[in-house]
């Protein structure tokens, strides 16, 4: 294992985050704060508690997931796409670095940035609403697993994209709608039939539900199912990344 290479890529990506701290950290924090102002204070005060949890507190896990998914994908996709765009990817491809090491470096850094962001959003949320944390270890597990999974998804998008537009298409047209419809701001039990059944096809439901359970002990689906589905997404992403490196798709001619 070329640990120095993993460290080099990881450090390089983290340095990029420091350079773009406004875009990477401050901007999502401001957006999340605005969500609290709108949904938590303005609208939330008119909504009853959900499962015994005040609405402002109820939406916190969903908001964290919203940012976590978006930022994991954005960080990882840009991290690998930009070297492809500038041509500097040649030095990674010609170095004694395996595909596993490349992914650990790029996706690992993207996941780290997202987890840091998630923690910052939690701290920000605590300023607005009270928070409970019944299962902290499970919270960390869901946070890290989701960040890792969607960083891999971002990595795949960064490899697939052949322009900046494509880099935005999947997050904008697929991930954001799925996140909004995945119970970030409501419990899917509040949906009328058959929409609750339809919502179960949205993978984000399982992530948000499991994550929310770790805070308040309430969930739309069984936490075991949530964990299992998260593991399935992770495995599927890993399989696609493995295929990319095996075939050299968009990396090697």
């Amino acid at each position: 294992m070329n640990l120095e290479a993993i460290r080099a890529i990881y450090k390089f990506e983290m340095a990029r985050a420091r350079r773009t701290v406004t875009q990477t950290i401050i901007s999502p924090v401001i957006s999340t704060s605005l969500y609290f102002v709108v949904f938590g204070a303005a609208i939330g005060s008119r909504i009853q508690s959900v499962g015994g949890v005040g609405y402002g507190s109820f939406i916190v896990p969903g908001l964290v997931m919203l940012s976590l998914l978006g930022q994991s994908i954005a960080n990882a996709s840009f991290g690998i796409y930009f070297p492809r765009f500038t041509g500097t990817i040649y030095e990674v491809l010609s170095a004694p670095v395996s595909s596993v090491e490349i992914v650990l470096g790029y996706a690992g850094a993207a996941a780290t940035k997202s987890v840091i962001l998630g923690v910052i959003i939690l701290i920000t949320a605590r300023l607005f609403v009270p928070l409970e944390l019944l299962h902290p270890l499970w919270m960390i597990a869901f946070l890290v697993l989701t960040a890792a999974t969607f960083s891999l998804v971002g990595f795949i998008i960064g490899i697939w994209a052949d322009g900046f537009e494509k880099l935005q298409i999947v997050p904008l047209l697929i991930v954001t709608p799925l996140t909004f419809l995945g119970g970030s701001f409501y419990s899917i039990n509040m949906l009328p039939h058959p929409w609750r059944t339809v919502a179960l096809f949205d993978p984000v439901v399982y992530l948000v539900s499991g994550f929310r359970w770790s805070f308040y002990g309430i969930a739309d689906v069984n936490v075991g199912v949530s964990l299992g589905m998260t593991a399935v997404f992770l495995a599927a992403s890993l399989a696609i990344v493995w295929w990319i490196f095996r075939t050299g798709y968009r990396l090697k001619t």
Binding site: N2, L3, E4, A5, R7, A8, I9, K11, F12, A15, R16, R19, T86, G87, T88, Y90, E91, V92, S94, A95, P96, V97
Partner: peptide
């Protein structure tokens, strides 16, 4: 390898980019 095109990062410092390359080679 010194490639034909001037493919470099833009925002990194000279020192960091050569350190990065050395790290890539383990």
């Amino acid at each position: 390898l010194v490639p034909q095109e001037l493919t470099t990062d833009a925002f990194e410092s000279v020192w960091n980019t050569v350190s990065f390359t050395r790290g890539l080679f383990g």
